[in-house]
Simulated assay, not measured.
Amino acid sequence: MILTMPGRGVAASDFEIDRNDALAPERGGRLGSVSLGEPLWHAKYELSRSMSLDLSDEWRAFAARLRGPQRVLVGQDRTRRYPRNYPDGFAKATRVAGTPFDGAAASWSQAINSDLEATLTLNDLPAGLRLERGDYVGFRWDAAGSPAGTHDRLAMVRLVSPAMANAAGTLDALVEMPVPTLVVPAGAEAHLDNPACLMKVVQGGVKLGDIDTLGTLTGGTIEAMQDLRP
């Protein structure tokens, strides 16, 4: 079961990469580093202290349905659901061939250089489409055995360099984290609309505030970590 957070009620959030690395001192004093696992997205959502009764009930129901870390939720950076230059989406954008652009690239690839920096290439975008640092590219695909079009697997990466699609609709950008290609299949759809990933609540990560005399929540937090699954 995959749960979606209520659309309103988040007052502030923190959405960043959590790396599980360790220093590895070498003889001679040089400091190396060792990666102990895949980098994962970590999110913390702070709830508003001034909700309506209906919205408070919705958040309390959502928190109860999570059952702690048992169930999966859809997590995203709620401050950047679309690229910075396209906050209202792509209703007026067209691909190079003149067909409407729905936010998805026709294909994608990734190259990693000797410094382990990842360049993501997106194809068949509108010519001149510009992405900024902090914009996201999402990936969605169907899990093995799921009905076609379910898109019950989600992952995302964030741009760390600005980029613009050329006249052919191809865009190259540096991203962090690199696309985890051991999990994300080559046939996954790369898209710019509402990028998200699957997450699970960390231990003790649901802390709802008290209920005031009006029956509404007085804030709270939900903290979750990416659940990267094929």
Results as ranks from 00 to 15, higher is better:
Arg133Asn: 14
Val202Gln: 06
Glu16Asp: 15
Met177Ile: 12
Glu46Asp: 09
Glu38Thr: 08
Arg133Asp: 11
Gly149Tyr: 05
Val175Phe: 06
Ala63Glu: 10
Val201Arg: 03
Ala127Arg: 01
Thr121Trp: 03
Gly28Leu: 11
His151Glu: 12
Ala224Phe: 00
Phe139Gly: 12
Lys200Phe: 03
Leu125Gly: 07
Leu192Thr: 02
Leu53Arg: 05
Ser56Gln: 03
Pro100Tyr: 05
Ile222Pro: 03
Arg84Asn: 09
Phe101Val: 12
Arg130Met: 05
Arg30Ser: 11
Glu58Cys: 03
Val160Glu: 01
Gln70Pro: 14
Ala104Asn: 03
Glu26His: 13
Arg153Gln: 15
Ala61Cys: 07
Asn123Asp: 12
Ala61Met: 06
Gly215Asp: 02
Asn194Lys: 07
Met225Arg: 15
Gly215Leu: 06
Pro39Gln: 09
Val175His: 13
Gly29His: 14
Asn20Cys: 08
Leu122Arg: 00
Cys197Pro: 12
Leu159Arg: 02
Arg130Asp: 09
His42Cys: 05
Leu47Gly: 08
Ala24Val: 09
Asn113Met: 05
Phe15Arg: 02
Asp172Tyr: 01
Asp18Glu: 12
Glu223Val: 05
Val137Ser: 04
Pro87Gln: 10
Leu3Arg: 13
Met164Ile: 06
Phe101Lys: 12
Phe62Gln: 00
Gly98Tyr: 00
Gly28His: 12
Val34Asp: 10
Gly128Thr: 08
Glu176Asn: 15
Arg67Thr: 03
Asn113Asp: 15
Val184Gln: 03
Ser35Cys: 05
Asn85Glu: 05
Leu214Val: 10
Leu36His: 03
Glu26Lys: 15
Ala190Trp: 13
Asp212Phe: 03
Lys92Ile: 01
Arg60Asn: 08
Ala155Thr: 04
Gly138Leu: 09
Gly9Gln: 11
Thr4Val: 11
Leu159Asn: 06
Asp212Trp: 11
Leu159Asp: 09
Pro180Arg: 11
Arg158Asn: 06
Arg133Gln: 08
Pro180Leu: 02
Asp210Asn: 06
Ala24Asp: 14
Ala97Gly: 10
Ile222Tyr: 02
Gly75Arg: 08
Val72Gln: 04
Leu55Trp: 08
Arg133Ile: 15
Leu228Asn: 11
Gly219Met: 02
Thr170Leu: 11
